[in-house]
Every structure is written in structure tokens, then in C-alpha cells.
Design a protein around this nucleic acid. Structure first.
Length: 863
RNA sequence: GCCCGGGUGGCGGAAUAGGUAGACGCAAGGGACUUAAAAUCCCUCGAUACUAAGUAUCGUGCCAGUUCGAUUCUGGCCCCGGGCACCA
């Protein structure tokens, strides 16, 4: 055995072996219990970063562990390969997004292989391949037929210089993230998925996902945003029409003194038409529509509005209420109209003060009075009803239901619920995405592409345009098509592509039968594998990706394509990888190798100024606090890199980068290696001890017990809560104890007990550091690969301790302790404790009031 | 503003059906080995005080409470991180 631990030799050796023997390959096998383990697939940016390393290491540990427990484990990997960065990179390098993407995929695949992850690479998927997106287009057509996909005109963030729609997260302070030019709201025809149809179901099932983090569930619930209230009709003066509003505060309806409509509300123009206010209203609508919504929020938002010239009638009080259009009313929420109650809503209060509108208090606090003339802010709490006719004196909480019922009985409104969730706009005016399979015919209108014409291929022979504008509308051979219905030659294809979140909403289902050509899925395979038993990824996808996936799975379920509704049974959101930031007063953020000097006095290499140590933050290129996994692999190897990621913190917490920590992990592996080489000759041909525990004494007995206790502890830590850090520290303890056994020891069972301990160490470490474990086992003469090995079991009789420490407390404070045989009875313990020399001295003649005895634990004496 | 997390040594973190606070690792200090250094192995390592190789007191963000006993349970407060935010 080589005395030196040499990851550079070991790791490629086993990676080759695993690949050659196809040990990561998995087949459907109804005889075996399945376990589907999935990590969020990456965008192929070209390089894996520490976040990926951590995410995929955690996943690989679970995959390997579950395999050793006898599960048939599906552990796939693929690429979320469509998206804007590929287009930008292609423009910058005068290349093609496909070429750029596939080159990146190749390099990232080899990086992942270098880390020893046990993926079944035969199932690899790239979402940009026609073989993949053709089924997405197919499902789109199905959804279109059922009205689940529809087209409407709506406002989007639009950047003129870039000629494209921007997602909300691509708008920074009202400007385009790429060109820094102001973003405006533009009305465009867009395709939508009717996710709101499932709002109730998605919400209900939030409480049926016990394997999800509380935090993510809460975020999803908030995002769906169900609220209970009433829809109330306010008749418009001198017409037969009424304005319908949604409110959660119908208890305050008698305090409604004016009405606010969203600028986009269809009634706004109608009401002001022909009135003197018409011009002002028109200008207001124009101005507000140009404002970006996120910009409106950032500028601490000035509430403003204009009077439409019309009045409506409060159905309960008969009061005339001026109708305004106001910027804070949103067309997308409720009915696009707000009944304004200035006394009990802060926005309405501000608005009323600004425009001199009437304030009427209808709920007073339980213990005080409220005066409209002197109040400085709205009272939004609960209280006693006043100025509300028959409801006066009622608790406002009860009035909610009473008033809603009253409105319903008198045909003025009804109880209602409203959701914050909106339909999912999936159109993107970009090139690098899946084409939407729709044709527009001047005669027939919107015509779906016939199924047999799928896939609609994304043309590859294109010149990308400066600024990111999609070339598709300029490509006649793509654009111009004859209508599938009437055959006229002047029809046009849809040139928008689908949001990349559509691809990531079903990739995990495709993994079950990735090469199936007869349909989206092979039913047998998805029925066997789905749902995903454990999903692992970043919390940044807590809402969008996970919500879309839950929705899409419901759609697939409705079409009978899969049997389950919820795609992910358990979810683990791992923390971020962080590192301290370092900056120089002159040169800004510095990379680690732009800094010189000792740890006390670090300086900028360029200007010799003392550096500023900033906060510990998520690794990012802009903060320059990144560590390239490649360098770690070169210096320490994959096993050390994996070990550090697992040991430094439990998975759900943030991980703080530490060079010394990595060093510590490396040292540990070396330490195990040296221990093994010291013992190898003695234990190579010995079989592990499995005899009667009473044959052992002293340190060997202890080591035997410790070995089994470690198996127990590591199993529990992985099984119960994925706490790999404590699992690893348990193995470290075992190794420390093994160092306490002298190799020249001639006790009869020393070699077999050491053999048992050493084999256990290899097995227990194998999910974490698989190459190391393979090598260690091979060295011990074990032929079978770790991929086929069984997880070790522990012997109950070895877990029973011979004797234990009883703690003696006085008034709850530790004062003494003694060793005693296990299960000694309470009376003996009490007597021994009171007899204890130190205790005697402490008590002296103080009267003993009470003695609490806990068997096998402690004695507490109260004086 | 609302909703989630989280505050434990010099540092990362252990320990919660209430029962020895600080496992394991890092850093630091000491010793062994070495011509020397690195590596390695062994020991020490929460704070304070003292009659100092021992003992006492304090100590898990702060303040109360429940209890024989609280890092763990309850109430209030402070700080940090994250998410959402004109949602009627």
C-alpha cells in the first residue's frame, strides 16, 4: 500500500472503473423499491461553481446512501439549456447559441464527472434539443384545445433599445439590466397558461407537503395570496351600470366615501367621456401606462389620481361617491376597482388628505374615540362599529360576516375570494427558446400547428441581431407559411418562444423515459418513478420554478399522462456558499490573489493600501469572493472538496468558505490513509470480528462498541435529517479512537476488531468520499465495488454500554459524578449520591428538602 | 409594514420527549520527532477570581416566567439574515 494518499491517482482510476462497468446505470425494476433523487439541473454557463458543487454533492451522498440501502435509485442529470445568456454570448463571440451551449455542456459534464457524481448519464437531457421541446409543443397544443393556454393583450416590461420583453427580475430600478435604458410598459399580445384555475388546489396541497421546508410553503402560500372578502356593486349615478369592487374590509363599507379605478379599467374612459375631465383623465392614463410598475414601487410611490367627473352610490348609505382613477389601483387584482375608506386604509387616507375628500369613521377602537378632523393616520385595527346604521355597536370582526350576508340578501353583492396569483405569461420575444406552435391566418385567425407537423424546429441558420432582438420575425422561411386550415399562402408563424421555465417544469418527468419517441413519456416508466422522492436545490427557486412545476404536473395529470399531482415529495433547499468580501479603497472588490501580506495586515497588490474586510456574502463574480472548484480539484481532489462541503455546515444552512477548513478535510483523509497503511499487513487477510462481545476487554471492547455506535449514529444522521456534518464527525471520533490502538498490541482479537473498524470506516465514508472508500476497500482486499456494497448494520448488543456516569447535582448544579453499572435502581443511586464525599462536604448540615433521581442519568439534591 | 429563519468559545459548528453546555473540525499555545523546517504524533484550549496543578463564581442575544433543574418550554424585547410588499 502506498504510504501517501494520492487523490490524483485514485480518483481518475475509479471514475474510469465506474464508467466502464456502467455502475451508475439504472433500469426500471418493479421488483425493487424505487427512490427518485433529483438535484435541480444547471444552466450550462460553461463552468460549475461552488453552489453547484455543494448542491450536487449533497444529492450524490443521498443517492449513494439509498443505493446501499437496497433502493433502485434514479439519479439523473441534464441541462436547462435555453435562455438569454446563450444569445448574448453568441452575439459577443460571433458564434451561435447552439454551439456555445453544447460546448458548455461538454465542459460542464466533464467537470461533474471529475467530482465523482453517480449520475446515470444515459438519461442526460438538454432542453434545447428538438427531441425534448417537441413534446412541450405537443402539450401546448393539447392545452390550447382545452383553453388552458390562451392569448390576450397585456402589459409587459419593454426595453426599446433591446427590442425585447424583460422579466420582472431583469428590471433594475426601472431600467434595463443590460443597457440601463428606462423600461416602459407596453401592451402586447401574449400567450398565457391558466395557472389561476389551479390556485385553490395549489394552495390546498401546500398543507399536504410535509416533506417541504416550512419557509418554502409559506412563500408559496403568500404568492398565491388567497384572501376572503366580498364583491360589492356600487351603482353609477344616472346609469344602469354599476362598479364592482372586491374588498376584504366589507365591515367598513359605510365609510367608503369615494371610488378608485385602475387607469386601465374600461369604465374610466367611458365615465369621463364628454365631460370636462376627459382630457385630464386621458393624459393621466397615458402617463401612468408608461411608468414601469417596479419603478413605481421604488420611488416610495406618490399616490395620485384624477376625478372622472362621475359619481357612484354607496349601496348601504346611499351616499354619492366621486369616482377617481388612481395609480395605486391595479387592474390585475380583484376587479380593478377599490372602494376607498380613508378612515380605515392608509392609502385611501393619504389620497383623501391630498384631494380634500371626506373621511368617515365607522370602526372605533375598543378603548378610545376617533375624530375625523384630528386623526393623522388610518385606523386599520378591529373595534366597535359606528356610523353604520343597523350594524352600530357590533364588533367589527362579526360585522365582516353580517355585512357580507346582508349585501348578499339584498342583491348588492356577495361573499368572494380573491387570489394574488396571476396567469403565467409564457411568451418571450427571444430567439433561443422553444417556438410556440401557432400560425396566424388572415382568414382563419389563430390556428394551431397540426400535431403531425411537430416539432416546429428553431431555425439554426440565423444571424443574430445586435441588441438581442429575435431574428425569427425576419426569417421568411420560418415566418411565412400556408394556413393548415384553409391553405392560403399568406399565414404567419408565431415568432415568440416559450419562457424557459416551461422546460424546467417537466424535465424530471422526462428523465423517467428520456429516449421515448412515441410520446412525451413512457407511461410505465413515469408510473414507476414519479413522484420525485427527494428534490434538492437552491431556495431562490422557492416560488417560480417550484410553483410552475406543481402546476404543470397537475396539467399532465389532467391529461392522464402521469398519475401524480405533486411532483416532489420531499424538498431540501440548501444554503448558499458564502465567503468574506475584500476590497481596496481605490480598486474596489479584490480577488483573493490580488491581496498580499499576513492575516493581520493584508494589502492590495496594486496600490499597497490596507484592505477593507467586508461582510461574508454569497459568492458572486461581481463581489469577487469566488473560489473556482477547478483549483480545489487540482490541489486537493474531488473527495476533499466534497468532504469540506458536507462537513462545514448542515445542508440547509449557509456555508462559509474556509481554506483552512478544506485543509482540515484533506488532513483527515490523510490521517485515515496513514492509519490504514500502518495496519494493512496485520488486517489484510483477517475477517472482521463478529464474535461474543465478552471475548473483548479494555480498549478493544471499547473500540468494538464505538464502531457499532458510529454505524448507528451515521445511519441516523443521514436517514433522519441529512446532517452529514455530524455523521462525518462521528467517523472522525472513531478514527481518533483507532489511533489509540497500538499496532504491536498482541491481544488475540486486535486484528479482527481493527479490521471491522476499518471496513466500517470505508463503508460509512463511501457516500461522502467514494473514490477514497473504493481504494481503501480494494487495499483491504475487498473485490466488490462500493457501488454494490451494502450499508453496514449495527449490533444492538454492542450499543449497550457496560457502565455509565451518574451526575450528581445540588440545586440543579453539577457537583459530582460517579460510574455505575447500567440500570442500577433509584434507591442505590440516591444512597450513593448522598454518600459521595464531595456532596457530603457541600451539604454539611443543610437540610435536604428533596432528592430527584433519574435512572441511568442523574441525582439532583435540593437543599 | 407583513411573513419566515437565526443569535452558543477566537472561528465553523455539536448537544433540544428539559437532565454533565461547547462533540468534531479550524485557529492558537506547549511538547515529541528533525541539523532545521514542513509534515506527523501527543497534550492544553469559554471567561473571571483566588488561598492557583485545585476550587469557586459567571456563562448559550436581553428581561421575566414555569421547573428540583432551561441552550431546549412560555411571554415580552433587541439584533442579524431572507422573502413579500400600493393586493383593496
Amino acid at each position: 500500500m502506498d504510504e501517501r494518499y494520492d487523490p490524483k491517482a485514485i480518483e481518475p482510476k475509479w471514475q474510469k472503473f465506474w464508467e466502464a462497468s456502467q455502475l451508475f446505470k439504472v433500469e426500471d425494476d418493479p421488483e425493487k423499491e424505487k427512490y427518485y433523487l433529483l438535484e435541480m439541473f444547471p444552466y450550462p454557463s460553461g463552468n460549475i461553481h461552488m453552489g453547484h458543487v455543494r448542491n450536487y454533492t449533497i444529492g450524490d451522498v443521498v443517492a449513494r446512501y439509498k443505493r446501499m440501502r437496497g433502493f433502485n435509485v434514479l439519479h439523473p442529470m441534464g441541462w436547462d439549456a435555453f435562455g438569454m445568456p446563450a444569445e448574448n454570448a453568441a452575439i459577443a463571440h460571433n458564434s451561435h447559441p447552439a454551439k456555445w451551449t453544447y460546448t458548455n455542456i461538454d465542459s460542464m459534464r466533464s467537470q461533474l464527472k471529475r467530482l465523482g457524481f453517480s449520475y446515470d448519464w444515459d438519461r442526460e437531457i438538454a432542453t434545447c434539443s428538438p427531441e425534448y421541446y417537441r413534446w412541450e409543443q405537443w402539450l401546448f397544443l393539447k392545452m390550447y384545445q382545452k383553453g388552458m393556454a390562451y392569448r390576450k393583450e397585456s402589459y409587459v416590461n419593454w426595453c426599446d433599445p433591446c427590442q425585447t420583453v424583460l422579466a420582472n427580475e431583469q428590471v433594475e430600478a426601472g431600467a434595463c439590466w443590460r443597457c440601463s435604458q428606462p423600461v416602459r410598459q407596453k401592451e402586447l399580445w401574449q400567450w398565457f397558461f391558466r395557472i389561476t384555475d389551479y390556485a385553490e388546489d395549489l394552495l390546498t396541497y401546500c398543507d399536504k407537503l410535509p416533506g417541504w421546508p416550512e419557509k418554502v410553503i409559506t412563500m408559496q402560500k403568500n404568492w398565491i395570496g388567497k384572501s376572503f372578502g366580498a364583491e360589492i356593486r356600487f351603482p353609477i349615478e344616472d346609469t344602469d351600470e354599476a362598479i364592482s369592487v372586491f374588498t376584504t374590509r366589507q365591515d367598513t363599507v359605510c365609510g367608503a366615501t369615494f371610488m378608485c379605478l385602475a387607469p386601465e379599467h374600461p369604465l374610466v374612459l367611458k365615465l369621463s367621456e364628454g365631460k370636462q375631465q376627459a382630457v385630464e383623465v386621458g393624459q393621466f392614463i397615458e402617463r401612468i401606462s408608461l411608468q414601469d410598475r417596479s419603478a413605481r414601487v421604488i420611488d416610495s410611490f406618490e399616490k395620485e389620481g384624477v376625478f372622472t367627473g362621475a359619481y357612484c352610490i354607496n349601496p348601504l348609505t346611499g351616499k354619492r361617491m366621486p369616482v377617481y382613477t388612481a395609480n395605486f389601483a391595479l387592474m390585475e387584482y380583484g376587479t380593478g376597482a377599490v372602494m376607498s375608506v380613508p378612515a380605515h386604509d392608509q392609502r385611501d387616507f393619504d389620497f383623501a388628505k391630498k384631494y380634500g375628500l371626506e373621511i368617515i369613521v365607522v370602526v372605533k377602537p375598543y378603548d378610545a374615540d376617533l375624530d375625523e378632523a384630528t386623526m393623522t393616520e388610518a385606523f386599520t385595527g378591529e373595534g366597535i362599529m359606528i356610523n353604520s346604521g343597523q350594524f352600530n355597536g357590533m364588533d367589527s370582526v362579526n360585522a365582516l360576516d353580517a355585512i357580507a350576508s346582508f349585501l348578499e340578501e339584498n342583491d348588492m353583492g356577495k361573499k368572494a375570494v380573491s387570489f394574488r396569483l396571476r396567469d403565467w405569461g409564457i411568451s418571450r420575444q427571444r430567439y433561443w427558446g422553444a417556438p410556440i406552435p401557432i400560425i396566424y391566418c388572415n382568414t382563419c385567425g389563430v390556428v394551431p400547428v397540426p400535431e403531425e407537423d411537430l416539432p416546429i424546429l428553431l431555425p439554426e441558420d440565423v444571424d443574430l441581431l445586435e441588441g438581442g432582438r429575435s431574428p425569427l420575425p425576419t426569417l421568411d422561411y420560418f415566418l411565412k407559411v400556408s394556413c393548415p386550415d384553409c391553405g392560403r399562402p399568406d399565414a404567419k408563424r408565431e415568432t415568440d418562444t416559450m419562457d424557459t421555465f416551461v422546460e424546467s417544469s417537466w424535465y424530471y418527468e422526462r428523465y423517467c423515459s428520456p429516449n421515448y419517441h412515441q410520446g412525451m413519456f413512457d407511461k410505465k416508466a413515469v408510473d414507476y418513478w414519479m413522484p420525485v422522492d427527494q428534490y434538492i436545490g437552491g431556495v431562490e427557486h422557492a416560488i417560480l420554478h417550484l410553483l410552475y412545476s406543481r402546476y404543470y404536473t397537475r396539467v399532465l395529470n389532467e391529461f392522464g399522462l402521469i398519475h401524480c399531482k405533486e411532483p416532489f415529495t420531499r424538498l431540501l433547499t440548501q444554503g448558499m456558499v458564502c465567503k468574506e468580501t475584500v476590497s481596496c479603497p481605490e480598486h474596489g472588490f479584490l480577488l483573493p490573489d490580488e491581496v498580499d501580506g499576513s492575516s493581520e495586515e493584508r494589502r492590495c497588490k496594486k496600490c499597497r493600501q490596507a484592505i477593507i474586510v467586508g461582510r461574508v456574502e454569497k459568492m458572486s463574480k461581481s463581489k469577487k469572493n469566488v473560489v473556482d472548484p477547478h483549483i480545489l480539484l487540482e490541489k486537493y481532489g474531488a473527495d476533499t472538496t466534497r468532504l469540506f462541503c458536507l462537513f462545514a455546515a448542515p445542508p440547509e444552512r449557509d456555508l462559509e468558505w474556509s481554506e483552512q477548513g478544506v485543509e482540515g478535510g484533506y488532513r483527515f483523509l490523510n490521517r485515515v490513509w496513514r492509519l490504514a497503511s500502518k495496519w494493512i499487513d496485520a488486517i489484510k487477510t483477517t475477517s472482521p470480528f463478529d464474535g461474543d462481545i465478552d471475548q473483548l476487554g479494555g480498549k478493544l471492547r471499547e473500540l468494538f462498541q464505538k464502531t457499532h455506535a458510529t454505524v448507528y449514529k451515521v445511519t441516523k444522521d443521514i436517514e433522519d435529517r441529512f446532517h452529514f456534518n455530524t455523521a462525518i464527525s462521528a467517523v472522525m471520533e472513531l478514527v481518533n479512537m483507532m489511533y489509540g490502538i497500538d499496532p504491536v498490541n498482541k491481544s488475540p482479537h486486535v486484528n479482527s476488531v481493527m479490521r471491522l473498524a476499518m471496513e466500517s470506516v470505508a463503508l460509512l465514508l463511501s457516500p461522502f468520499v467514494p473514490h477514497f472508500a473504493e481504494e481503501l476497500r480494494e487495499t483491504m482486499g475487498i473485490k466488490e465495488s462500493i457501488m454494490l456494497a451494502k450499508w453496514p448494520s449495527f449490533r444492538e448488543d454492542a450499543l449497550v454500554k457496560d457502565e455509565l456516569v451518574i451526575v450528581v447535582q445540588i440545586n440543579g448544579k453539577l457537583r459530582s459524578k460517579f460510574n455505575i453499572e447500567i440500570d442500577t435502581d433509584e434507591t442505590t443511586l440516591k444512597a450513593l449520591a448522598l454518600d459521595d464525599e464531595r456532596i457530603q462536604k457541600m451539604i454539611k448540615d443543610k437540610p435536604v428538602k428533596n432528592v430527584i433521581v433519574v435512572k441511568n442519568k442523574l441525582v439532583n439534591i435540593v437543599v
